[in-house]
């Protein structure tokens, strides 16, 4: 149980780092179209061709899988430890809703990841579905894929709404991961709680607003 929890924490922290890079790259979409298209496409081509990024990509896939897999195992075990529910339980008076529902929030995010991967990763990397065109420089036109997707208001709303559970999950996850890994410095944890809140807000807001901006661009 300790090892499983540590794996969830470590993979979670790695995914947190990944999101920072991901969001930074998304910010390119905010630039004027002429610059954004070239920059975004050459950036993603560079990523696809770099060996080091390829390795990191595998670590990333593995992290997602392990994070989900062990979370599932732990959840099942925890359910077994508490098979019966109270007739009345006012858990909102002693803990946050998020902390009580990390599993549910996680499932929502997982569903999103699947849709998200189908939208981008499957098309660009695996070549499944509609073929991705090339831009003037001969790079795969990932910008176009993004741009077209976010012309669809339903996807925009979906992506924006999902940033809420994402932010909640990140907030509780980041705070708890360090404790799971044994960080128990009292002042440090107070600072960490603030960083986690800040991080979650930036991530939630960032990922949530960009699709909208692209839509209205």
């Amino acid at each position: 149980m300790f090892l499983k929890k540590s794996i969830i924490a470590l993979t979670g922290l790695f995914l947190c780092l990944f999101l920072i890079v991901h969001l930074s790259a998304n910010c390119i979409l905010l630039l004027p179209e002429t610059i954004a298209r070239d920059l975004y496409n050459s950036y993603s081509t560079t990523l696809r061709e770099s060996t080091i990024i390829k390795v990191i990509a595998y670590v990333l896939y593995l992290s997602i899988i392990l994070h989900v897999f062990y979370a599932l195992l732990i959840t099942l075990k925890n359910r077994k430890a508490k098979p019966q529910k109270y007739v009345i339980n006012k858990s909102n008076e002693n803990s946050s809703w998020t902390s009580q529902n990390m599993g549910l929030i996680g499932v929502i995010i997982l569903l999103f990841i699947i849709v998200h991967l189908a939208n981008f990763w499957a098309r660009i990397k695996l070549g499944i579905g509609e073929e991705v065109g090339l831009d003037a420089m001969g790079n795969k036109d990932v910008y176009e894929v993004t741009h077209t997707l976010f012309q669809n208001i339903y996807f925009v709303i979906f992506y924006t709404l999902i940033s809420i559970p994402l932010a909640l999950h990140l907030h509780h996850g980041l705070k708890s991961a360090f404790k799971t890994l044994g960080f128990y410095h009292k002042k440090g944890l107070t600072i960490l709680a603030k960083i986690a809140l800040f991080y979650a807000i930036v991530m939630g807001f960032g990922f949530g607003i960009i699709p909208f901006i692209v839509y209205f661009k």
């Binding site: 925890n78 430890a81 508490k82 803990s95 799971t180």
Partner: peptide, 21 residues
């Protein structure tokens, strides 16, 4: 017993106020 996911409910209900840290 299950594993700790740091909901923090325990330290609120603990009669001795033992911290979750």
């Amino acid at each position: 017993f299950g594993s700790c996911t740091f909901t923090g409910a325990c330290e609120v209900e603990c009669p001795e106020g033992i911290s979750i840290i």
